[in-house]
Amino acid sequence: MPDFPTPDLSHLTRADFRNVYEPAEDTFLLMDAIEEHPRINLDDDRQRGRDWPSVCLEIGSGSGCVSTFVAKVVGRSNALFLTTDVNPHAARATRRTGEKNEVTLDPVVTDLASALLPRLRHSVDLLIFNPPYVPTESAEVASPLPAPLFSISASWAGGVDGREVVDRFLPFADELLAPEGVFLMVLLEDNAPEEIIREVRERWGWTGRRVKERRAGRERLVIVEFVSGGDAHAG
């Protein structure tokens, strides 16, 4: 598989990173999972005949680093790279990071995937979410409403067990994923990934597995891959 460099973020300053999550270990682990994914990163022969994914969607794109990386690996003209973020600063950073790295990302300021449904119903081939997963008080979790003052804690505060935003999003993921779609999500060991994998298998019949793990300080990061069902899922 070809290697891809980390996207150039030199256009973003300290001031930007006061309002937008700065790429960290979780971001890099997610990019590693993308680079090592056998359906996303193809060798040159298969890249020429690529017919998947057509629609990529990243929820909570922050700096735009991950979706830029996806566009580089998939090929910038081979798919639509939609992103959402509830934070307008992040949406702007995402657009600029795409431009800086000569790919086009299509950011939307919205709560999770709101406004993209029902149009994207069962149409997203590659779904990516690095959620706010840090266990915190519920009160710290981002509001889906426009905040008078954006707080950077919204980019990581995950509420009880770090699961509040993850659990709110999962039903939308089921609506969004195309048949045999791939959903990559960042979790902590503290979020009980095995429990989430079991729950979504029982609810929607997805296949879930850990694809990457790494210790980062006191946290243990896990990248989980879900693959939605085939034909039974469609319609």
């Binding site: 307008p88 702007r92 950011p107 939307v108 300021v109 919205t110 709560d111 709101s114 409403l145 426009p146």
Partner: peptide, 8 residues
């Protein structure tokens, strides 16, 4: 700046 804002 080219970005739609869908917040309610």
């Amino acid at each position: 700046e080219g970005i739609p804002n869908m917040l309610l």
